[in-house]
């Protein structure tokens, strides 16, 4: 039997050498592929928002039709890369926790007082079991009671006090 079907052909990858991304005067992301009309108002979706945030980024129209996937952010030309990174940072607001000052519990609701790369913040967690996700290498993802997300890149690298507080919770 002739082996004509290749699974990876299903991928709709964008050629990083011909695709250009930038923000227009409406502050919308625009995708330009050589020889085609530019697509405005692009939405960016990470295929692996947790395990590989800078790879496999789907670009979609407002009506959620996928135009193609950027396999690796780093392969784009510098301007496009910055534009895409900027759009991703805006769409995925997930501050990184740099220190934990206190975790107090009232009525079984832990309230975290932390410092993040975006400034100090206090938030509450509804259920430590469901809303705190511990990944490999000490990486911790936290979703607070309102659906905001936070990340600890490696809780074992936090200062001693912060680390003790986090360890009590995970």
């Amino acid at each position: 039997m002739e082996n004509s079907y290749k699974l990876t052909d299903e991928l709709n990858l964008l050629d990083p050498t011909t695709a250009r991304l930038y923000h227009d005067e409406f502050d919308d992301l625009v995708l330009e592929i050589a020889g085609r009309d530019p697509e405005r108002g692009i939405l960016v979706v990470r295929c692996f928002p947790i395990s590989a945030g800078d790879r496999f980024i789907a670009l979609c129209t407002r009506k959620e039709k996928e135009l193609g996937i950027v396999e690796d952010l780093a392969a784009l030309d510098p301007d496009s890369r910055n534009a895409l990174a900027d759009a991703l940072a805006r769409a995925y607001f997930r501050p990184q926790i740099t220190a934990v000052y206190a975790i107090t519990e009232e009525h079984h609701i832990p309230r975290w007082q932390v410092d993040t790369d975006r400034g100090p913040r206090t938030f509450e967690i509804r259920s430590s079991r469901r809303d705190i996700r511990v990944l490999s290498q000490g990486r911790v993802l936290i979703r607070d009671a309102d659906g905001n997300q936070y990340e600890i890149p490696n809780y074992r690298r936090l200062d001693v006090d912060s680390r003790a507080l986090v360890e009590d919770q995970v």
């Binding site: 005067e25 805006r90 995925y92 997930r94 905001n148």
Partner: peptide, 27 residues
């Protein structure tokens, strides 16, 4: 309604800009 926050964007005939960012706590 973004993945970790929300934003409000306004457009005129010629420009567009984000006028407010807010965490989901303020939804």
């Amino acid at each position: 309604d973004l993945y970790g926050s929300g934003a409000l964007k306004a457009r005129t005939q010629t420009t567009g800009q984000t006028i407010a960012l807010f965490s989901k706590t303020l939804n």
